[in-house]
Amino acid sequence: MAWEYVVNGINGAIKLVVNGDPELVDIAIRSVKVSGIAAVLAAIIGVPVGVVLGLSRFKGRGLLKSIFNALLGIPTVVMGLILYLFLAPAGPLGFLGLLYTEMGISFGQMLLILPIVISFTVSSIESVEREIRDLALTLGANKIQIMFKIVEESLSGIVLSIIAAFNRAVAELGIALMVGGNIFVRGGGLNTRVLTTSIQMYVARGEIDYALALGTILIAIVFTITAISNYLQKKWVGYD
């Protein structure tokens, strides 16, 4: 009986995915878009911060690194709650009008994944910094050339940090639910329903086939993005 429940759910999910259910497609595209924007914003801010933090030595650097490392594990529900309080109409950032919008989710996810991009970028830089700096220095490179060489040598780690950040964003629930609100009106232009919020909703409703189909899509997105990034790293970043 229990297995029948699961098998029926899987069968229903396969049909929905194979038939390209428009609602599923819409939700999946929105998820990729919202989390993609979050990852791009986090990369634009986080990579330069990580590079500077990785390359420079100043007082308080260790503390700053520890803070970013500690933020890696922040529960998304807590983050969602804090963001909700800040973005609510009466909150300090209420004037931005981001609550219950796609951009609001992107903003929240960007804050969530920023420590991932920064911490992983710092680690990538630090893992090659000493030996590449010495080598480039003794071969006659100046400070700028050395910095570029270190970043170039750390590039695969930096790309990996952005991929990990995107995967964390697309798979999180707390922020998408509290800041986005899981709004969906067929044909509406202000929808905020994404994969994770809809999975949670369909499970609550007992519509397991939908939940499984969306779960499958979510996993497929994560795997596909990772596979593409691996391919591009080999092609663009070049030799191992």
Binding site: E131, I132, L135, T138, L139
Partner: peptide, 26 residues
């Protein structure tokens, strides 16, 4: 003065790119 380290560190890239590095930065 150029130093060659005991454990040879290689840059990413081909042998040609590695050997050419010191000339490129000049």
């Amino acid at each position: 003065i150029t130093m060659v380290f005991q454990n040879p560190v290689m840059f990413k890239g081909s042998v040609f790119d590695n050997v050419a590095y010191g000339l490129r930065v000049r």
